[in-house]
Write a protein that binds this DNA or RNA. Structure first.
Lengths: 228, 228
DNA sequence: CCTTCTATTTAGCAAACACTAAGTATCCCA
DNA sequence: TGGGATACTTAGTGTTTGCTAAATAGAAGG
């Protein structure tokens, strides 16, 4: 039997090791058995500290979010000031700063739930650095020349924000309003809180709206034309 | 019983409907039952046309990749020319152009394997557009002012490339060298082909290498210090 | 040494998963 | 009108998943 720890220590230890596993394999790609093994315990120990696998994931995000509470407070202040530009500017900066401060969290948020398609094992590990260098260098060069001013901002922001909003960044920035540790809180409620907050600031999208991120048809009608 | 189709038609139909499901729920988040239901058939029909769920996913990517074979050919030409800058420039442009041409594929590649963390159902659908507008607008504005020239290129490229290289873009750009429909081809082989191709062009990373995207420890040693 | 409390493990459940054997309906052509 | 070929379904399989009841081991106090 492993060394006995006090409850708090064990919990912290689990969180600490879970970060790496989630960052590596993604949420769905990570099994509770793996999480337990990584922490050097068995599964029931996990469930003594975290009600569900999701809770553990959320605990990580929230633990990390706690570290930037000051910046979140500053954001709240900006939000109250009514200066839209400064407010959203601060959000963007918080994203970028946070990523640089804590690459582990950055990876968790950016790639956290990114699964590896089967063959990607070595592929990623060895290709990533090269490919990253290639394209980073390229984009950087081109941007210095004034290129990609529009399209890159589009694509980059879309990818960045799409993922970050997925994976808890909103929670990270608005820990008070959006507690993901309360799964009972419905998505509708969360949306309301957020949109109300935006509406109060008088926010209106500056463009009609980009290609809708989602088609209406959840599952195409099976009677749809099958034309060749 | 559903309408009978010829094999080719049914296969195309399955691919067509599977795109939406994968784009919506991600690879791991999509079940074969869902794929079958979306196509209006039962599961065995899926397995009549595709050996595995992965094969279906790959079929989508490859079907789409076929549509840009000309651009891939142009890339190959550039690669042969030895002009590093033009070569990687073309890669970057292909990424961005492709995204604009075919948002569905873009989503599949960018968000394709992005699962939705449980509570995200409505959250994403209704929040995404607003959040996207906010931050896109912000980044665009700031870039016009010359800000984020460095940090944004970093983060954007990292997120973009990390995901794209994960999810088949490399295959999309190099359909000949990397056929993901041959899962027997090992990751090692793919890496070799790619790196050899790069090496032939005399490519060397222009910077030492950014914060390593990956820690050495796959699963932290269970004997690691447990601190306070 | 004995009791009590808590940390931890053994062993396994029910549900969901990717996938399939074997049978049924529909088409096609003689 | 038959008979073979092919599209499709029913009804599962074995495995893996998240999660847990119940038993065990160690620490703390008397």
């Amino acid at each position: 039997m492993k060394v006995r720890m006090k409850s708090g220590e064990r919990r912290a230890d689990i969180v600490r090791s879970a970060i790496h596993v989630f960052a590596e394999k993604g949420f769905r790609g990570t099994t509770t058995r793996e999480l337990a093994a990584a922490a050097g315990v068995t599964e029931p120990v996990l469930y003594q500290h975290f009600h569900t696998k999701s809770d553990l994931y959320c605990a990580i995000i929230e633990a990390k979010a706690g570290e930037v509470s000051t910046s979140a407070a500053a954001l709240a202040e900006l939000a109250a000031s009514g200066d839209d530009r400064a407010f959203f500017g601060a959000i963007g900066e918080a994203i970028l700063r946070r990523y640089q401060e804590d690459p582990e969290l950055g990876r968790l948020l950016l790639f956290g739930s990114l699964e590896r398609h089967e063959m990607a094992d070595l592929f990623f590990d060895r290709l990533y650095a090269n490919f990253y260098n290639m394209v980073t260098g390229y984009i950087r060069r081109r941007m210095r020349q004034g290129a990609f001013r529009k399209v890159n901002a589009d694509v980059a922001a879309r990818g960045l924000i799409g993922m970050l909003s997925y994976h808890g960044l909103v929670t990270l920035l608005f820990p008070k309003q959006f507690s993901i540790s309360k799964p009972r809180q419905t998505a509708d409620q969360m949306v309301s809180v957020f949109l109300d907050g935006i509406a109060e600031k008088g926010y209106r999208p500056e463009e009609p709206m980009p290609p809708a991120p989602r088609a209406e048809s959840e599952r195409p009608d099976s009677t749809h034309s099958t034309g060749s």
